[in-house]
């Protein structure tokens, strides 16, 4: 099965989703990220969804799960690059993504994480 690459940048992990997500890839990403956070001791995870033209309840749940499990593993997750049409649809679908940090783009997401890291 195709797996999404997870890049380590300093103390952060970056996942940039560039393909049409299959559910099995979404589940694999969740597991891979948990492993990589522990393995690298990363303090932050940036998930770039700029290329995603939809986020449905399955993908939305994955984002919430990654945010929750990274928190337990002492890392912070930021979801970046959500398209406006995707945001509108998510709200109407009923997914508010409570508790998930977001930023407009990768650069801002990484800055948010490094600021948070310095403060705590």
């Amino acid at each position: 099965m195709e797996r999404l690459p997870i890049l380590k940048i300093g103390s952060m992990l970056l996942v940039s989703i560039q393909v049409d997500l299959r559910d099995d890839m979404v589940i694999a990403l969740q597991e891979d990220l948990a492993d990589r956070i522990v393995e690298t001791g990363a303090r932050g995870v940036v998930i770039d969804i700029t290329a995603l033209d939809i986020v449905d309840s399955f993908t939305g749940r994955m984002l919430a799960t990654v945010a929750a499990l990274s928190r337990i593993l002492d890392a912070e997750t930021v979801v970046v690059g959500m398209r406006p049409a995707v945001a509108i649809t998510l709200v109407e679908l009923g997914l508010s993504l409570d508790g998930i940090k977001t930023a407009l783009n990768v650069e801002r997401g990484m800055r948010l994480l490094s600021l948070g890291g310095a403060a705590t």
Binding site: I54, F58, P84, A85, T89, E92, L93
Partner: peptide, 16 residues
């Protein structure tokens, strides 16, 4: 674009 996104998202839920 918003309506496309809504319809495709609904289709994704229903296909699943």
């Amino acid at each position: 674009l918003v309506d496309q996104t809504k319809l495709v998202t609904a289709a994704s839920e229903l296909a699943r």
